[in-house]
């Protein structure tokens, strides 16, 4: 059983940890981008067959999402997902992904 006292130790530990605070960026790109991690992996790094988002350029994401949305490009699930976003949201998402 952990003691409450560890709360303090935890706070100190965290202050020292090299976590990247995401607090600064509140745009819709982050909000949408975080929903992608469920399939594409934590922080955009996939552990298997689903492509990683990390490493994709802004242009690549924008083109891919736009083409999935229009049906120009066909995927298994991405056509269904891409139709959920406006062009502005896709732009914001692309910016977020490029910054991963």
């Amino acid at each position: 059983m952990m003691k409450h006292r560890t709360l303090l130790a935890t706070a100190l530990l965290v202050a020292a940890a090299s976590l990247q605070p995401l607090m600064a960026d509140h745009d819709s790109g982050r909000t949408i981008g975080l929903t992608c991690f469920g399939c594409h992996g934590a922080d955009g790094v996939s552990l298997g067959a689903v492509p990683s988002m990390k490493g994709m350029s802004e242009e690549h994401v924008r083109t891919a999402m736009t083409d999935f949305k229009s049906g120009k490009r066909s995927g298994t699930i991405m056509n269904r997902i891409a139709k959920g976003y406006t062009d502005d949201q896709i732009k914001a998402l692309a910016k977020f992904v490029a910054g991963l």
Partner: peptide, 11 residues
């Protein structure tokens, strides 16, 4: 993708 989905969402 189903198998990889589970790995990724768990991680």
């Amino acid at each position: 993708y189903a198998e990889n989905w589970l790995l990724n969402i768990s991680n």
